[in-house]
C-alpha cells in the first residue's frame, strides 16, 4: 500500500534486484566492460602491451607479468584480450541497439498500419532475410570508402573499420526484431485496451508509444540481447575472413582467427578469446531474461 509514490522504473529496478541470477550476470558483464575499457591502465600497471609485438618473448609461459602468457608475436595475451574486448563488446552493444531500433520502428509501423504499408515493409524484410548474409557482408566490408567521398585519413584510421562493421551488422540484423515486433503489434492492436485508447481519441502515435511498444518490450529486449551475442559472433566471422577489425587493433573474433593456425602448438590461445565470447554472450542472455521479467508487472509476486 506504500507503493503509491513509487515510479514504474523504481518498481522495475526492485524486481530486477530480487533476481539474483540476473544481478550476477549484470555484475559479470559490468566487470568485463570495466576491465576492457581500463586496458591501457592495466598495461601500464604490468608494464606489458597487448598491441606492440616483441619477437624476443613469443609464446611466453604464464607468469606474474603475463597472466595468460604471450602470443605468437610476443604480445601480452591478457591485455590483448582486454583490447579485443573493447572492440567486441562495444560493437555488440551499438550494433544490437541499432538493429533493435531499426527493427522496432519497421515492425511496429508494419503491424500497426497493416495493409499496403505492412505489405511493402514485410516484403522488404523478406528481401533482406533472403540476401545471402556472408557474401553481402564481405562485399560491404570490402567497399572502398574513399570512392564514397570519405577522406583518406578517416578511411585509414581504425575508426572507419569499426563503424563500418557496426553499420553493416545493423543494416543486416534488424529483420528478426522487425518480425517479432510486428507479430507482437498485430496481436496488441486487437486488444481491448488499444480499442479503448482509440475510442478516447488517442492518436496513432500515442497508441504506439504508450500502449503497443511498452507491451512489446519483452520480445524487443530478448531479441536485443540475443542480437548482442549474435553481433559479437558476426564480428568474429568477419574478422575471420579478414574483412573485420584490422591489426594492430584486434577483437575477440580476430584473436580466435589468429589462434586457429596455432591450435596444435598453443591451443590455449584459442581458448581465451573463445571463453571470453562465451562468458559475455551467456551473461548478456541472463541479463536479458532478468530484464524481461522485471519489465512485466504481472511477474510481481503480490
Amino acid at each position: 500500500m506504500t507503493e503509491a509514490a513509487v515510479s514504474v522504473w523504481q518498481l522495475r529496478w526492485r524486481r530486477l534486484a530480487r533476481d539474483h541470477v540476473a544481478l550476477a550476470a549484470l555484475a559479470v558483464l559490468f566487470t568485463l566492460y570495466a576491465l576492457c575499457f581500463s586496458a591501457s591502465w592495466i598495461e601500464q600497471w604490468f608494464g606489458v602491451t597487448g598491441i606492440d609485438t616483441d619477437l624476443m618473448s613469443r609464446f611466453d609461459p604464464i607468469d606474474a607479468q603475463h597472466w595468460l602468457g604471450s602470443d605468437e608475436a610476443g604480445r601480452d595475451e591478457f591485455t590483448r584480450l582486454l583490447r579485443g574486448g573493447q572492440v567486441s563488446l562495444s560493437i555488440g552493444l551499438f550494433a544490437a541497439l541499432g538493429s533493435s531500433f531499426v527493427g522496432t520502428m519497421i515492425g511496429a509501423t508494419a503491424g500497426y498500419f497493416r495493409g499496403r504499408i505492412d505489405m511493402v515493409l514485410m516484403r522488404f524484410t523478406d528481401f533482406m532475410l533472403a540476401l545471402p548474409a556472408l557474401p553481402v557482408l564481405i562485399i560491404l566490408a570490402a567497399l572502398d570508402l574513399t570512392k564514397l567521398g570519405f577522406s583518406e585519413n578517416f578511411v585509414r584510421s581504425g575508426d572507419a573499420g569499426y563503424w563500418r562493421i557496426v553499420l553493416i551488422v545493423t543494416v543486416l540484423g534488424w529483420t528478426t526484431v522487425a518480425r517479432l515486433v510486428r507479430a507482437a503489434t498485430l496481436s496488441l492492436v486487437e486488444r481491448e485496451f488499444v480499442l479503448a485508447a482509440r475510442a478516447q481519441g488517442a492518436s496513432s502515435w500515442r497508441v504506439l508509444w504508450v500502449h503497443v511498444l511498452p507491451n512489446a518490450v519483452t520480445p524487443i529486449i530478448v531479441a536485443t540481447t540475443l542480437r548482442m551475442g549474435g553481433v559479437i559472433l558476426t564480428e568474429s566471422a568477419l574478422s575471420f575472413l579478414g574483412v573485420g577489425i584490422q591489426p594492430p587493433s584486434t577483437s575477440w573474433g580476430s584473436m580466435l582467427t589468429n589462434a586457429q593456425e596455432l591450435m596444435a602448438s598453443n591451443p590455449l590461445l584459442a581458448v581465451y578469446p573463445g571463453a571470453a565470447i562465451l562468458i559475455a554472450v551467456i551473461a548478456i542472455n541472463f541479463v536479458g531474461d532478468g530484464l524481461q521479467s522485471a519489465f512485466d508487472p504481472r511477474a510481481d509476486p503480490h
Binding site: 486488444r191 481491448e192 485496451f193 480499442l195 479503448a196 485508447a197 504508450v210 500502449h211 511498452p214 507491451n215 518490450v217 508487472p297 504481472r298
Partner: peptide, 12 residues
C-alpha cells in the same frame, strides 16, 4: 468494455 481484464493496459 465487456472484459475488465482486457480493457486496461497491463503496463500502466
Amino acid at each position: 468494455f465487456q472484459d475488465p481484464f482486457g480493457s486496461l493496459d497491463p503496463r500502466l
